[in-house]
């Protein structure tokens, strides 16, 4: 049993210099970032008791003003529906133009630029702008969600078109079909199920996002929720939050059910 062979557990990163260097870098980063942040530690240290008091006021959730709640939820749902449908229609031409295998390069770059810029800015930023342009209310929210939906659906659509089977396109092109006919006969059948799936998913996502556009005045349940926070009506806030959770849960359930049937 005089076995002198030693075994070292494999490290995630082979080179010791790199490994220790990275560990050091992470520690330095933590020190630098936490130290550099503008943190009012006195205020933060009150956090736990404050959280306790807040939860005390949250429970039990208060559903007394359910009419307000229902109105907000219905508005959110309507915003999600309208924006999803408009979004999925506008996304078709943009998605098509953003597919590198279907269109000339300049068109492709322009479409990609639209997708990148719309994706980069958070919904709330778009909502801020739309509120400035068309005023407070659901219209600003709907416009915001349309931008987000178009960005998302057209990106997915473009990827699907780029990944589709080009053999079928060639076969249809070989029959002498024009570009629109190719789209109709070789592209649409291949991507339609996934496109519908993405659109349904976006509907579900829009239900979730419709709550946030309300925070900057874009209508829907989010607007009601922000108001309760401003007035410290935490028991009503919790009621709204629970409703949102239930709504998102149902939406997800519905969305996965429909997508399951599309396959």
């Amino acid at each position: 049993m005089a076995d002198t062979r030693i075994w070292r557990p494999p490290a995630l990163i082979e080179s010791p210099a790199l490994r220790h260097g990275l560990t050091l870098a992470v520690i330095l980063y933590l020190v630098w970032s936490i130290g550099g942040l503008d943190i009012d530690w006195g205020r933060v240290s009150q956090g736990l008791p404050r959280a306790g008091r807040m939860f005390e006021r949250m429970f039990p959730p208060n559903f007394e003003r359910w009419e307000l709640l229902v109105r907000g939820v219905v508005e959110s749902l309507e915003m999600a529906l309208v924006s999803s449908l408009v979004g999925m229609i506008i996304a078709v031409p943009i998605g098509l133009c953003a597919a590198g295998n279907m269109v000339p390069k300049p068109v492709y770059l322009a479409a990609r630029a639209i997708i990148v810029v719309t994706r980069t800015f958070h919904e709330v930023i778009w909502a801020l702008f739309f509120v400035k342009i068309v005023g407070f209310g659901p219209l600003a929210g709907v416009l915001t969600l349309i931008v987000a939906s178009v960005s998302f659906i057209s990106k997915m659509l473009a990827e699907d078109i780029e990944n589709m089977n080009m053999g079928q396109v060639e076969a249809v092109r070989a029959t002498g079909a024009s570009f629109p006919k190719i789209l109709l006969y070789a592209v649409t059948p291949q991507i339609l199920p996934r496109y519908l799936g993405v659109a349904i998913y976006r509907l579900d996502a829009n239900i979730r996002h419709s709550t946030v556009v309300g925070i900057v005045g874009g209508g829907g349940i989010g607007m009601t929720l922000t108001a309760t926070f401003k007035r410290y009506d935490y028991d009503f806030s919790l009621a709204i939050l629970l409703t949102i959770i239930a709504l998102v849960f149902l939406g997800e359930f519905f969305s996965s059910w429909v997508r399951g049937r599309l396959r």
Partner: peptide
């Protein structure tokens, strides 16, 4: 279900305004 900004509303009420 709860958006980041809504979570932020809650945590601002707890920890006060700021990056925490």
């Amino acid at each position: 279900s709860v958006n980041t900004v809504v979570w932020a509303l809650i945590f601002v009420a707890i920890f006060g305004p700021g990056p925490v």
